[in-house]
C-alpha cells in the first residue's frame, strides 16, 4: 500500500533521510518511531508530496507521491505533526471548508464527523485561535478521519491529548484497523505503538535501523523474570541450559532468557518449588533505548 524505495531527501543542513526503504502492507498498522529530528516528519512530508526526494520513489497504492498528490489525497487522511489551521475560522466552519475542498457528499461524511466530534468531546463552535493545543489536535484528528479514508498517515497523532483522549484514540485506531485500514503512525509514545501496531520501523539519523513485526521485535530481545523460590534452586541446572541470572537473596532471582527459549525455562523451573513468577516485561522503550543508548536517555 505504502512503499518507499531507496529514497534520499537531503536538506541543506545535512539532515534528511537516506536510502530509506520500507513497505506498509494493506490492512497493516505500521509504527514509525524515533527521536525528534530523526527524519520521521521528513518521511511523512515526502509521502504527502510537500517536499520531493532527491533520489528514489515513494508510492501510495501505486500512485507516485511526488506527482499524483491530488489522487492520493482522495484516499488519504493525514494528521500533521505541527498543527496550523486557519486561525480566524471556527472549528465547524473549518470542517465544512475541508469537506467542500474534498468535494465529498455532505450527508455521508456528516455522520462519521458527528460521531468523531462526540468521541473526542470537541467543541467546534470555538474559534481555532482560541483553542488549546489538545483541542486543535482533536480537530486535526476529526479532519483526517471524517471522510473515511482507506489509508491514514498520522504524525504524532496523540501529542497534546490527555490520557483519556489518548486511550480513545488508540480505540479508534484499533477499530479502523479491524475495518481494514492501512495506517502509518509516527510516534515516540511506545505504549501506544505497542498497543496498536503490527510492525515497527525504528529510524535514527535518517536511516531505518530496525524494522520488524512487534512480536519478532520483542521476542528477539532477552526476557527477564523475577522468580521467588520456596527452597534454594538447583543453579547448576539453570547454568547447564545457558540461562543467566542475577541473585538477590538465596531464594530471590532475576532470570534472563532469550525470547525464543522461554518454553525451555519453564520446563527447567518445573522441577523447582516456584512461589512467584513475574515477567519483568521489556517494553519497546527499552528496545528503543538499546538502539539509542545514552543519547536517548538524556532526552
Amino acid at each position: 500500500m505504502i512503499e518507499v524505495k531507496d529514497t534520499t531527501l537531503k536538506y541543506s543542513n545535512g539532515k534528511g533521510i537516506f536510502d530509506l526503504n520500507f513497505k506498509v502492507k494493506k490492512g497493516e498498522v505500521f509504527g514509525y518511531i524515533g527521536p525528534n529530528g530523526a527524519g520521521k516528519t521528513t518521511t511523512i512530508r515526502m509521502l504527502l508530496g510537500f517536499s520531493r526526494s532527491n533520489k528514489g520513489v515513494a508510492t501510495i497504492k501505486g500512485l507516485n507521491c511526488a506527482k499524483q498528490t491530488a489522487s492520493i489525497q482522495k484516499i488519504l487522511g493525514y494528521v500533521p505533526g505541527e498543527i496550523a489551521f486557519f486561525e480566524e475560522m471556527r472549528g465547524n466552519a473549518f470542517l465544512n471548508f475541508m469537506t467542500q475542498m474534498r468535494g465529498t457528499k455532505q450527508a455521508k461524511g456528516l455522520k462519521i464527523r458527528e460521531s468523531l466530534i462526540e468521541r473526542f468531546e470537541l467543541d467546534t463552535r470555538e474559534k481555532i485561535e482560541r483553542m488549546s493545543r489538545g483541542m486543535k489536535q482533536k480537530l486535526a484528528i476529526v479532519a483526517a478521519f471524517m471522510h473515511d479514508p482507506e489509508i491514514l498517515i498520522l504524525d504524532e497523532p496523540t501529542s497534546g491529548l490527555d490520557p483519556l483522549m489518548q486511550t480513545r484514540f488508540v480505540d479508534l485506531i484499533l477499530e479502523e484497523k479491524r475495518r481494514g485500514k492501512t495506517i502509518l503512525m509516527s510516534s515516540h509514545r511506545f505504549e501506544e505503538v505497542e498497543r496498536t501496531c503490527d510492525r515497527v520501523g525504528i529510524i535514527k539519523e535518517g536511516r531505518i535501523i530496525e524494522e520488524n513485526d512487534i512480536i519478532a521485535l520483542k521476542s528477539a530481545e532477552t526476557k527477564s523474570y523475577l522468580v521467588k523460590f520456596g527452597t534454594p534452586p538447583n543453579l547448576e541446572e539453570l547454568r547447564r541450559y545457558g540461562f543467566s541470572f542475577k541473585q538477590f537473596t538465596e531464594k530471590d532471582f532475576e532470570i534472563f532468557s532469550p525470547g525464543d527459549r522461554i518454553g525451555l525455562l519453564v520446563k527447567v523451573l518445573a522441577n523447582e518449588k516456584v512461589l512467584v513468577f513475574n515477567s519483568n516485561t521489556q517494553t519497546l522503550e527499552e528496545i528503543f533505548l538499546k538502539h539509542y543508548g545514552k543519547e536517548a536517555k538524556k532526552a
Binding site: 491530488a70 489525497q73 488519504l76 500533521p80 498543527i83 496550523a84 475541508m98
Partner: peptide, 17 residues
C-alpha cells in the same frame, strides 16, 4: 509561513489548482 497551507494540500486538489 504559518503552516495553514497544509490544510489545502491535504485535500484532493493539486498545487497547480
Amino acid at each position: 509561513y504559518e503552516g495553514s497551507f497544509i490544510s489545502l494540500l491535504s485535500t484532493p486538489n493539486s498545487r497547480i489548482k
